[in-house]
Amino acid sequence: MNFEKLEVWKRSARLSADIYIHTKQIKDYGFRDQLTRSGLSVPSNIAEGMSRDSNKEKKRFLDIARSSLSEARTQIYIGIEIEFINKERGCSWLQETKELSAMLNSLKNKLSCNN
């Protein structure tokens, strides 16, 4: 399966890019680095997983991607609370992480049915 055709990969890559763009001004480099790294991990793990041969391996990488989404979501909540992230933008990112997580679950379930 070509990961570049997956909507979940496209949307997670856009989210990652958006996080990079809109966190440039954050002076707390540790916070910014952690958030951008967790965001970048999502499309990267989708790509790596979908390039694997077995469905078991694919599902493992999708689990990692979903875990990275949860990590990013936590950091976004904190970023909003400490006013590093604009509330409106942060809420949009939170919604996107929830939708992406559901998409990853759906993809993982499809892989389970193909065993």
Rank of each mutant, 00 (worst) to 15 (best):
47 A>Y: 01
60 R>A: 13
32 R>F: 08
66 R>V: 00
49 G>T: 07
56 K>I: 14
59 K>L: 14
57 E>R: 10
52 R>L: 05
30 G>A: 10
23 T>S: 13
50 M>N: 12
33 D>K: 08
60 R>W: 13
45 N>V: 12
51 S>H: 00
48 E>M: 05
39 G>E: 05
63 D>N: 15
46 I>Q: 05
21 I>Q: 03
38 S>C: 12
44 S>I: 13
31 F>L: 05
62 L>T: 02
63 D>Q: 15
60 R>I: 11
50 M>Y: 11
38 S>W: 07
39 G>W: 05
25 Q>W: 04
56 K>R: 15
23 T>I: 08
62 L>R: 02
66 R>H: 02
38 S>R: 06
44 S>V: 14
55 N>P: 13
23 T>K: 07
58 K>G: 09
27 K>P: 08
58 K>T: 11
58 K>P: 14
40 L>M: 10
48 E>W: 03
24 K>C: 00
32 R>D: 09
29 Y>W: 11
51 S>I: 00
48 E>C: 03
47 A>G: 00
52 R>E: 07
32 R>S: 12
63 D>L: 15
32 R>Y: 09
52 R>A: 04
51 S>E: 13
45 N>H: 15
54 S>L: 13
57 E>W: 12
40 L>P: 00
25 Q>K: 07
31 F>P: 04
65 A>P: 09
64 I>Y: 07
37 R>L: 06
58 K>F: 12
65 A>G: 06
29 Y>G: 06
45 N>G: 14
47 A>Q: 00
53 D>V: 09
66 R>M: 03
67 S>M: 06
53 D>A: 11
29 Y>V: 14
56 K>F: 15
41 S>Q: 01
68 S>C: 01
45 N>E: 14
27 K>D: 11
62 L>Q: 04
53 D>N: 13
42 V>A: 03
67 S>L: 05
33 D>G: 04
27 K>S: 13
47 A>M: 01
25 Q>L: 01
53 D>Q: 13
67 S>I: 03
59 K>C: 15
51 S>N: 06
59 K>R: 15
39 G>N: 06
30 G>H: 13
26 I>K: 04
66 R>Q: 04
27 K>L: 11
50 M>K: 08
36 T>N: 06
59 K>E: 15
40 L>I: 10
21 I>C: 00
44 S>R: 10
43 P>A: 08
38 S>K: 05
67 S>V: 03
31 F>D: 07
33 D>N: 13
42 V>I: 12
39 G>M: 07
22 H>I: 00
51 S>T: 03
32 R>C: 09
36 T>W: 01
54 S>G: 12
21 I>S: 02
28 D>Y: 08
